[in-house]
């Protein structure tokens, strides 16, 4: 990919933080929109790295999966999993 992975990951984190007032969970394609010139597979690799670095987590409705910052949002608390 053309982007530097570290700065791209920082951009993802920044995007999530900026939106955090209204929502904490994001669809995968919210992130692909940040990098319109990159392949979706490469964007996914960044997100996988962020999950493995414990900076982001998955959230699943059972049928749909979203990404969010670790510990962000109301759901963790309401499920008693924080």
């Amino acid at each position: 990919m053309a982007l530097d992975p570290e700065s791209a990951k920082a951009e993802i984190i920044k995007f999530c933080e900026e939106k955090s007032a209204s929502k904490s969970k994001f669809y995968f394609n919210d992130f692909t929109k940040l990098f319109p010139d990159e392949k979706t597979r490469d964007v996914k690799k960044l997100l996988t790295q962020l999950v493995q670095e414990e900076k982001m987590v998955f959230w699943s409705s059972g049928s749909t999966t979203m990404y969010g910052l670790t510990g962000a949002g109301k759901q963790a608390h309401s499920e008693g999993e924080d």
């Binding site: 987590v57 998955f58 959230w59 059972g62």
Partner: peptide, 19 residues
């Protein structure tokens, strides 16, 4: 109730949270 956070590390599926 449904729970969306629980799972195993690094996987986005395979576990369905229930309370």
């Amino acid at each position: 109730k449904h729970g969306g956070i629980v799972g195993v590390f690094g996987y986005g599926g395979g576990v369905i949270g229930r309370y």
